[in-house]
């Protein structure tokens, strides 16, 4: 076998940039960077005004205690927790400490600046962590729900391919599920109740009905005859549905079809 030489595909910088811009993560990081820059400028606005000498922008608000200005950093921390997860939250919280610490150590004329910064950062970090926790749980829930939907679809497809009719009846006589063979034998489910659908009655079948026995845990087998002469072998057993209710799970086997098949098989053998 000839060796295949692997040549890495070269992507030019323009193409790489366009791929990056189309990525969701690029915009998430961009928003985080913008938030951090905005909060930092807001936090040090008084010093920036002094440095540049913008006399018109000397508002008292930016020369007061900076605990309120620091609160703005809650936005990028909680955003990071919700969008990126736990590790990124820890990183951003440490970066915020790095941004805020020069003021606490060298600029602030107020009492205990470092202690106040530490209290804020602990609370902000905890909030960011909680946001990350919410995000993780939401993602996990979404993943489990999609898995469950996929499994339900798979099981439904399997039961639809079966030759036997399947019907699930709740304790209130309501039909919870029927497969395609069942609908083929008895028609579309137009009535919510089993006695209306299977026998055309207006009330439960009375002594013939095995629902209460099956719900009590028994497995029952009987023959269900149709007015047109069709006969079904029914096997009913208890089943606990997703809501915890005990239901009757019944399979309907068309005996005519099976008898014909049996005859044909014996004829072929002869």
């Amino acid at each position: 076998m000839a060796d295949i030489e692997y040549k890495p595909r070269k992507i030019n910088s323009g193409k790489a940039l366009s791929i990056a811009i189309r990525s969701k993560d690029f915009w998430r990081l961009y928003i985080l960077a913008v938030l951090m820059v905005f909060c930092s400028i807001f936090y040090y606005f008084g010093e920036i005004v002094d440095l540049v000498g913008w006399q018109g922008s000397r508002w008292d608000f930016f020369y007061g205690i900076h605990d309120i200005h620091r609160l703005l950093f809650l936005i990028p921390i909680i955003y990071t927790g919700y969008v990126f997860g736990t590790r990124a939250t820890v990183l951003v919280t440490i970066i915020v400490v790095g941004i805020c610490i020069p003021r606490a150590l060298f600029i602030s004329p107020f009492a205990h600046p470092l202690l106040r910064l530490l209290v804020f950062i602990l609370i902000a970090g905890a909030l960011g962590y909680l946001a990350a926790l919410v995000r993780t749980r939401m993602k996990r829930r979404g993943y489990l729900e999609s898995m469950m939907r996929r499994e339900i679809g798979r099981l439904s497809a399997l039961s639809d391919r079966m030759e036997e009719g399947i019907i699930l009846i709740g304790p209130d006589y309501r039909i919870r599920y029927s497969n395609s063979s069942m609908r083929l034998y008895f028609g579309e489910v137009t009535s919510p109740y089993c006695y209306q659908y299977l026998r055309g009655l207006d009330e439960p079948c009375g002594e013939v009905c095995k629902l209460s026995e099956v719900l009590a845990g028994a497995v029952r087998r009987w023959r269900h005859e149709l007015p047109d002469g069709g006969v079904f072998e029914v096997l009913a057993s208890p089943y606990i549905d997703a809501d915890g209710a005990v239901c009757q799970y019944a399979t309907f086997r068309d005996t005519m079809v099976h008898e014909e098949r049996g005859k044909r098989a014996s004829e072929q053998q002869d």
Partner: peptide, 20 residues
């Protein structure tokens, strides 16, 4: 800080949507 600026993927570590 320089490492984080040069490798912003650090933030995407447990972001499993489209992590590359």
């Amino acid at each position: 800080l320089l490492y984080m600026l040069c490798h912003p993927q650090v933030f995407l570590e447990d972001n499993d949507d489209d992590n590359d």
